[in-house]
Design a protein around this nucleic acid. Structure first.
Lengths: 157, 157
DNA sequence: GAATGCAATGTAATACTATTACATCATGTT
DNA sequence: AACATGATGTAATAGTATTACATTGCATTC
């Protein structure tokens, strides 16, 4: 069985890490930003900005697109969420402070995404781009495809 | 000096290849689709859909968003253009019929993009995704970064 | 403690990207 | 002629993201 959304305890622990991280960096994780992060974490999968906006409003927050985009921008700068451009969605990062080198495995079928923070996955590729004089950005490479669960679903009914 | 847009002869040759490719596949490269492809090719870099729409209109074509998106969808299905999701733009593929395994090196500074059709670049990475039960889609991996030209510009003024 | 400056948020409007739904037209087939 | 099909025309709308400007709250300085 797949997890539908995160257990509250896990969300709490995750948020606590994020708070510690921001405190250590002297950055300002305001209630609003924290709330947006909480929503992204709890979802347990990539979320679209306007879903977050709806969720905020449902909680009684004022809110308009900039509310959400500004919070997401902050969170991304802090390395607490990642933007998945190919998906137009945002994913909470389980390990703030990580290097965030690696890949995000993004499933076209179920929409879930798995962050794999393993620089060794992408380093050989990135190193070869030197030959083109190209300097890749630090960050995660988005890899679209089919996740384990959906593949099994498809193959063995 | 960098090339601003493609030489007409090169565009013509490119289009001729595309026509041959479609003829061989029995697919229907209509005048409209051909014109859109021509615009993408001539630009020599990723183009946004609405730029194409404007260009079509400037040429006296009727046109609305679906006009462009339908043409692009066709061209992508034929492997004649690639969609760069991270850039929300479309890039003409110089080699129809290729496997299109490899990367697109996408420069954040100048906006240019280079398609590198070299499966050996990505195969080691993709193979390792097996360990996650993940089945990557065939296609190009978008790599954001800084191109050779912009890097030199930045480093040696 | 009033004035100033700054970061964060509120709010309205708008720009940009993409799709849906339905009408029309041309072409080939029965 | 009637019909089926694929391509295009057209209007409307959905979804994503940004700009611009007003306001608030708090810390600093005088």
């Amino acid at each position: 069985m797949r997890i539908k959304s995160l257990h509250p305890d896990r969300v709490r622990a995750w948020l606590a890490r994020a708070e510690a991280w921001c405190r250590a960096r002297g950055s300002n994780l305001t209630p609003l930003r924290r709330e947006v992060l909480e929503l992204v974490i709890a979802r347990g999968r990539p979320v679209r900005a306007y879903e977050l906006l709806d969720a905020l409003r449902a909680r009684g927050r004022a809110g308009s697109p900039p509310t959400v985009y500004r919070a997401l921008e902050f969170l991304e700068a802090e390395g607490l969420v990642h933007r998945l451009s190919a998906r137009k969605a945002w994913l909470a990062c389980p390990e703030p402070g990580h290097d965030h080198a690696g890949v995000v495995l993004s499933c076209r079928h179920c929409g879930r995404a798995l962050e794999v923070d393993d620089a060794s996955l992408v380093e050989p590729l990135l190193a070869r781009l030197d030959a083109y004089g190209f300097e890749p950005e630090a960050g995660l490479l988005e890899v679209p495809g089919t996740c384990d669960w959906c593949r099994q679903e498809r193959d063995h009914g």
